[in-house]
Simulated assay, not measured.
Amino acid sequence: MTADLFDSVAEAQPSREQIADGAVLLRGFAKPIESGLIAAVRAIVAQSPFRRMTTPGGYQMSVAMTNCGERGWITDHTGYRYDPIDPRSDTPWPAMPLVFRDLARRAAEQGGFTGFAPDACLVNRYEPGTRLSLHQDKDELDFSAPIVSVSLGLPAIFLFGGMARSDKPRRFRLVHGDVVVWGGPSRLAYHGVAPLADGEHALLGRQRINLTFRRTR
């Protein structure tokens, strides 16, 4: 049986895998609503296009991104923060689609976090060779809500570590439709994405789209 066939079986039969205390991997959880999610992403990008932001240290991120929801995550020479306004257009970020909100709520419940109501969704675009270094999601004001991360498009190696950057991360291969939820004792775990391998996804081509849902305040 080939790797592609293993991926198809995993997507057809969603499963719940505990990967750490307070963290679960939901295989294929988003696959049944892939068309709605992709259409929503395209509508968001049409209003607020992908861009590569610059870190406070002056480095340009390899991952292109945009946002939707009440607040969007941005970085520039002044630091990392959430803002209700898209700095490129000077207008509010696109509203978060209902299909996004419902998916995030249902996934959070599977992870043991009820009542999750995200007010921000980061939409990241990975192309072959791009990566995301180990980091913590700590720009939010309240850490009681979980993080919900949805993978679409090309497979990626997700790195999930501990509370210190020096902790060796575990590696998880995420495919189209997989969802990772982490919170509670794992809320501030270091995580990242290894350099994306080249490939061609049937629906999204040579890219991976990641949706990251957060409650910022």
Results as ranks from 00 to 15, higher is better:
L159G: 03
S133P: 01
S149L: 01
M163N: 13
D139G: 09
L152Y: 09
Q136C: 09
F172M: 14
E140K: 10
I157C: 09
P146C: 01
L159Y: 01
S149K: 07
P169D: 00
S133A: 13
A156G: 14
S133N: 07
F172C: 05
M163H: 12
V148Y: 09
P155F: 09
F172E: 08
L152S: 13
F172N: 12
D137W: 07
L154G: 06
V148F: 03
S133C: 05
R171E: 13
K138V: 08
R171Y: 14
F172A: 10
G162M: 05
R173C: 07
A164G: 08
L152P: 12
F160H: 03
P146R: 08
H135Q: 00
L152W: 12
I157K: 08
D139F: 03
L159S: 07
R165F: 01
Q136F: 06
V148M: 07
I157V: 15
D137G: 12
V150I: 06
P146T: 07
P169R: 04
K138W: 03
S133T: 09
D167N: 05
Q136P: 03
H135M: 01
D139L: 07
R171S: 10
P169G: 05
K168E: 15
S166L: 06
F172G: 15
A164H: 15
D139E: 15
G153S: 10
E140S: 11
R165I: 04
V150H: 04
S151F: 10
R171L: 12
S149V: 03
L134Y: 04
L134E: 03
P169K: 01
S166Y: 00
I147A: 12
D139S: 13
I157T: 15
L152M: 15
P155E: 08
E140R: 08
D167F: 02
A145S: 15
F158L: 04
S151R: 07
L132F: 04
R170C: 09
F172R: 05
V148D: 05
L134D: 03
I157M: 09
P169S: 08
R165T: 01
F160N: 05
I157P: 10
M163R: 13
I147E: 02
F158S: 03
P146H: 07
E140V: 06
R165V: 01
S166R: 15
S149W: 08
D137M: 10
F143L: 09
G161T: 01
M163Q: 14
D167Q: 05
F172T: 11
G161V: 02
L159A: 06
D137Q: 06
L132Y: 05
V148E: 11
G162N: 12
H135G: 00
G153Y: 13
